[in-house]
Structure formats: structure tokens, C-alpha cells
Computed example of a mutant assay.
Amino acid sequence: MLEKVNRMNELYDIYQALLTAKQKLYFELYYQEDLSLSEIAEQFEVSRTAVFDNIKRTEKLLDGYEEKLQLLSKREAREKIIGQILVDLTDERLRQWMDELQALD
């Protein structure tokens, strides 16, 4: 479950600009503030099912965006390559440049 939460949060960080305000709000309350479906439903005076459906649709959207754009996969690949380079890197100036590149992510 924790792995799913981490992945959803990473996808959200990348693709949140593509979501509606309501999708963002429910997602943040559920995944980042750790509110239950019932707590969110009570706060907005909607059914628990409405909250559940909204969050599930948002998860599918985020997964769909990643399937098409692969931004998270590419970031993870970049991080892996940078990590390997840093292990093998000996020149201090090159190491500094790699640190600067890594800071950009």
C-alpha cells in the first residue's frame, strides 16, 4: 500500500496541473493529508461513494498520463544513470556538474 501511495504522490507531483481543482483537493486530502473517504465526504457534504469515485478516476487519469508521457519513468531512469555516474566519477569538476544536474530534478 505504501508503494502505491508513494507512486500516486509522485505522479501527482508531475501531472497535477492537468487535474481539476476538485480532483486536486480530494486527492491531496486523501493521499497527502491521510483523511478517510468518510471524513472527506463529511467535509464536503457528499457521499463516500462520490469521493471514492473521484479519487479512483483521478488515479486512472494519472496512470494514463504516465502511460502516454512516461515522465516519471524517464525521471527514474535519469536518477539511476546519474547515481551510476556519481559512483564511477573521479574528476571533482565533473562531480560538481553532476550534482548541479541532479539538483535540477
Rank of each mutant, 00 (worst) to 15 (best):
L18D: 14
R93M: 00
D13F: 04
K56C: 13
N6Y: 10
T90D: 14
E28D: 07
I82D: 03
L2H: 14
N9F: 10
L19W: 05
L94W: 06
Q96R: 13
I40T: 02
K22Q: 13
K68R: 07
D105T: 07
R7A: 15
R75T: 09
E92G: 06
Y12P: 08
D105L: 11
E45Y: 05
Y65C: 01
D88S: 15
Y30I: 10
Q84N: 13
D91I: 07
N9R: 14
Y65L: 04
Q102W: 00
K24D: 01
Q70K: 11
Q32R: 13
L37A: 06
R48I: 02
R75F: 06
L29D: 06
E79P: 02
F52Q: 10
D34L: 13
L2P: 06
L89I: 05
R93E: 09
E79M: 11
S73Y: 10
S47H: 04
I85R: 04
V87T: 15
E76A: 09
G64V: 03
E79W: 03
V5S: 14
A17Q: 04
R7P: 12
E92Q: 12
E42M: 09
L25R: 06
Q32V: 08
S38P: 02
E79T: 15
N54F: 03
Y65T: 03
Q43I: 01
R48T: 08
L37I: 00
L11E: 04
A103W: 03
K74Y: 08
Q16N: 15
Y65K: 02
L35H: 09
L104F: 05
A21M: 03
Q43G: 04
A50M: 01
T20N: 09
L18A: 11
R48Q: 11
L72A: 02
F52D: 12
E76L: 12
L104P: 07
L71P: 01
D91M: 06
E100W: 01
L86Q: 13
M98K: 08
L86E: 11
Q96H: 11
V51N: 03
E3H: 13
K60G: 12
V46G: 01
L37H: 12
K22V: 07
T58R: 01
Q23G: 09
R78E: 10
S36L: 04
T58F: 08
I85S: 04
M1S: 15
S36H: 08
N9V: 12
